[in-house]
Amino acid sequence: MAKTPSQVSRDFGRFVHALRKACQQTQKQLAERADLSADTVLRLEHGTFSPSLHTLSKLVAGLRVEFSSCLRIQPARGRVGP
């Protein structure tokens, strides 16, 4: 069964949170590095905001990861990556 948009947003938020924690960054630090507002990072992590491609490109730059890493979400196991 396909996931609903809200499920996808929540899964993506958990993924962003895990990446940020792995990079040992606070939400504020990530926001500054990504040139995003702290509120945007908060909403992304809580799954209440779906980013545009532009925002996503800023986010991956702030996390210092490859864009393709955002396409390998595995929320069922709580893991990041392949």
Rank of each mutant, 00 (worst) to 15 (best):
M1T: 10
M1P: 10
M1A: 13
M1D: 06
A2K: 08
T4A: 04
T4K: 04
P5F: 00
P5V: 03
S6I: 12
S6F: 00
Q7G: 11
V8E: 11
S9K: 14
S9N: 07
G13Y: 07
G13S: 02
R14E: 12
F15W: 11
V16K: 01
A18G: 02
L19W: 10
L19T: 01
L19C: 10
R20D: 08
R20V: 05
R20N: 07
R20F: 05
R20I: 00
A22W: 09
A22Q: 14
C23N: 15
Q24I: 05
Q24H: 12
Q24R: 08
Q25N: 13
Q25T: 02
Q25Y: 15
Q25V: 04
Q27E: 12
Q27L: 05
Q27I: 01
K28M: 06
K28E: 13
K28W: 04
K28Y: 09
Q29A: 13
Q29N: 05
L30E: 00
A31L: 08
A31N: 03
A31D: 01
A31E: 06
R33N: 15
A34L: 00
D35S: 12
D35L: 08
L36D: 05
S37G: 14
S37L: 03
S37Y: 05
A38D: 11
D39L: 11
D39W: 05
T40F: 03
T40A: 15
V41H: 03
V41P: 11
V41T: 07
R43P: 04
R43M: 12
L44H: 03
L44E: 11
L44G: 09
L44A: 01
G47Y: 05
F49H: 14
F49A: 12
S50L: 04
P51G: 11
S52W: 01
L53G: 13
L53M: 03
L53Q: 00
H54N: 03
T55N: 13
L56Y: 08
L56N: 07
L56E: 00
S57D: 10
K58E: 05
K58R: 13
L59G: 01
L59A: 05
L59S: 04
V60M: 05
V60Q: 04
A61N: 14
A61L: 09
A61P: 03
G62W: 05
G62R: 00
L63T: 03
L63K: 08
R64C: 13
R64V: 00
V65Q: 10
E66W: 08
E66A: 15
E66F: 02
C70H: 08
L71R: 12
A76G: 00
A76L: 11
R77A: 06
R77W: 04
G78N: 11
G78T: 03
G78L: 02
R79P: 00
R79V: 15
V80L: 12
V80M: 06
G81C: 09
P82L: 11
P82R: 10
P82Q: 12
P82S: 09
P82A: 14
